[in-house]
Design a binder for these strands. Structure first.
Length: 563
RNA sequence: UGGGGUGUGGUGUAACGGCAGCACACCGGCCUUUGGAGCCGGCUGUGGAGGUUCGAAUCCUCCCACCCCAGCCA
């Protein structure tokens, strides 16, 4: 068998395995901060970390990087755990950086004792000023050379709450002239007089990311600490701290990869919050949101998201992936798994003149042509049916194969019908079609072998179940939603038509008992998922994704050429 | 402007000194009781200039472009 192509991270891991850098161990972690909901970008990291562990017989922890009590909440922890599980992963250990606060404090004391950290009493503005910039080396704080004893005492007083926020911080003593800003005496501990959602009022000093992350990795025995590209500059600090504290070797290895970007999507926490708080969407789980909870509600199967994350690969190149690619994965999975049903979204009444009044036939329909084991079901046929408005045109253009005056088409699983008359209202709008059917074509087969160009879907009017259907389109008008002229709000790129609600749509009766979360293909239309808002009295479906539509593409193309 | 990183078809990724491959998209054909699915075929690429080498996407030099860094966020 041909070797599966390896990404650069797998290469590094295999080299470590070969050299036994970590005694043959592989231990990764997914380290979210519980201050927001997980989105498709996190999914890339989740899939990467968990599947790397699995592939090499290692472990993967779920670790909450909860070092900032101002923004973190248990609610987010719960949501994150739910989403990771939904995606299909089980962590080996559930850890919290906040559980390490005691040890982290001891690490800080160790650094002070080694003369590698000091309490700085410069106010925030001064610290910023002393840091310099890219072209100017920083200056050393006048407090940089306090004695170990003084630093120890000051740090202890910080812990006891004797200082106000901003009055002092603990800093690593590295190099104020370093071209890497992260090495200009980075802040390790700051004072925040706020209770922590897990630690309560125990602490009023909290470690920064740099102080907490690598040390947490080391505590947990993480071997490969995978993060995104923006932390590349932090790696020297990551390594410096591990060594300075004297954590046992081998130290975990930080590896950076490019985060996911998707067209027609924003993934920054800040922007996602703006969408929710600005009322552009109904909430974090709005089916238009790129959050995992939104996608779940939209009807995306977790398998599709996993597949997508594997397909896009891992590298260090900032890459924007077309949204269509995700949708293609969704279609792929649903095509194999979603039961087919007949549903008419925009009903047009059709009377079959030569079909006996009052007669009903229950016809056999395949549940899934892709899956022979899916079986069949019965759908009722009668004299009055609904078809899709789009499936009829009074003056059909070339290449339009569906119903038109005088034309014959097949009703899926039923009969051939021919349009003999068009009924309009006073405004000239088509309100009803009069058709005839050919009794010899029952089941959709013509014994004389004649062909029709199209097969359309339909629902018996007398048996139809009414439902609300929510049609979703991309949330933004532009591939890059943040692309706006100077001074213009990026949210002007929000698509005003990203949601269209249809009612009453007509469903075949077998859909009557559909439960929230159930997914179906409405034939010729797309995949649909029952929304949690759905009740037995009023069914609500979300359109997950449309089917590929050659006709729509053709229409668009000819329109483009005409323009 | 200092530092760190990255450039392979339209898009995303392989090839790690030896035939530039794969997937998606796109185009064409076949098939079809979903204009779906499936099947077959096709197009398009190593950022640029030098150099080393029998041989360079790969090594060297210079240039160009893009991304990240000046939070007591992560």
């Amino acid at each position: 068998m041909a070797e599966a192509p390896k990404n650069f991270i797998e290469r590094i891991i295999e080299e470590d395995l070969e050299k036994s850098t970590y005694g043959g161990r592989v231990h990764t972690r997914f380290p979210p901060e519980p201050n927001g909901y997980l989105h498709i970008g996190h999914a890339k990291s989740i899939v990467l970390n968990f599947e790397l562990a699995k592939k090499y017989g290692g472990k993967c922890n779920l670790r909450f990087d909860d070092t900032n009590p101002l923004t973190e909440k248990q609610e987010y922890v719960d949501a994150i755990k739910r989403d990771v599980k939904w995606l299909g992963y089980e962590w080996d250990e559930e850890r919290y950086a906040s559980d390490y606060f005691d040890r982290l404090y001891e690490f800080a004391v160790t650094l002070i004792k080694k003369g590698l950290a000091y309490v700085d009493s410069l106010p925030p503005e001064k610290i910023k000023e002393y840091r310099g910039d890219w072209n100017t080396p920083g200056r050393e704080s006048p407090y940089r050379n306090r004695s170990v004893e003084e630093n120890l005492e000051l740090f202890e007083r910080m812990r006891r709450g004797e200082f106000k926020e901003g009055e002092c911080v603990l800093r690593a003593k590295i190099d104020m002239r370093s071209p890497n800003m992260n090495l200009r005496d980075p802040i390790l501990y700051r004072i925040i007089h706020a209770p922590h959602y897990r630690q309560g009022a125990k602490w009023c000093i909290y470690p920064t990311y740099d102080m907490a992350h690598g040390q947490s990795d080391a505590i947990e025995g993480i071997t490969h600490s995978i993060c995104t590209l923006e932390f590349e500059d932090h790696r020297p600090l990551y390594e410096w701290l591990l060594k300075a504290i004297g954590l046992p070797e081998p130290h975990p290895k930080q590896i950076e990869f490019a985060r996911l970007e998707l067209t027609y999507t924003v993934l920054s926490k800040r922007r996602l919050i703006e969408l929710v708080e600005g009322g552009y969407v109904a909430g974090w789980d709005d089916p238009r949101m790129p959050t995992l909870s939104g996608m779940r509600r939209r009807g995306y199967p977790p398998e599709a998201i996993r597949r997508f994350c594997r397909e896009i690969g891992v590298s260090k190149v900032n890459a924007v992936v077309p949204l269509e690619r995700l949708e293609e994965c969704v279609r792929d999975v649903l095509n194999k798994t979603a039961p087919r049903r007949l549903a008419v979204l925009r009903p047009l009444r059709v009377v079959i003149e030569n079909y006996p009044e009052g007669q009903v036939e229950w016809l056999d329909a395949l549940n899934n042509p892709e899956d022979p084991n899916a079986g069949t079901r019965k759908v009722p046929f009668s004299r009055v049916i609904y078809i899709e408005r789009d499936d009829f045109m009074e003056a059909p253009p070339p290449k339009f194969y569906r119903l038109a005056p005088g034309r014959e088409v097949r009703l899926r699983y039923a009969y051939f019908i021919k349009c003999v008359d068009v009924v309009k209202d006073e405004k000239g709008e088509v309100v009803e079609l009069r058709c005839t059917y050919d009794p010899a074509t029952k089941g959709g087969k013509a014994p004389d072998g004649r062909k029709v160009k199209a097969t359309i879907h339909w629902v018996s009017a007398a048996h139809a179940v009414d439902a609300e259907v929510r049609l979703y389109d991309r949330l933004f008008l532009k591939e890059d939603p943040t692309d706006v002229p100077e001074g213009v709000d990026w949210k002007t790129n929000v698509n005003p038509n990203s949601l269209e609600v249809l009612y009453p749509c007509k469903l075949e009766p077998s859909l009557a008992g559909a439960k929230p979360g159930e997914r179906f293909q409405f034939e010729r239309l797309g995949y649909f998922c029952v929304d949690p808002d759905s009740t037995p009295e009023r069914l609500v479906f979300n359109r997950t994704v449309t089917l590929k539509d050659e006709w729509a593409k053709l229409k668009q193309k000819t329109r483009g050429e005409a323009a």
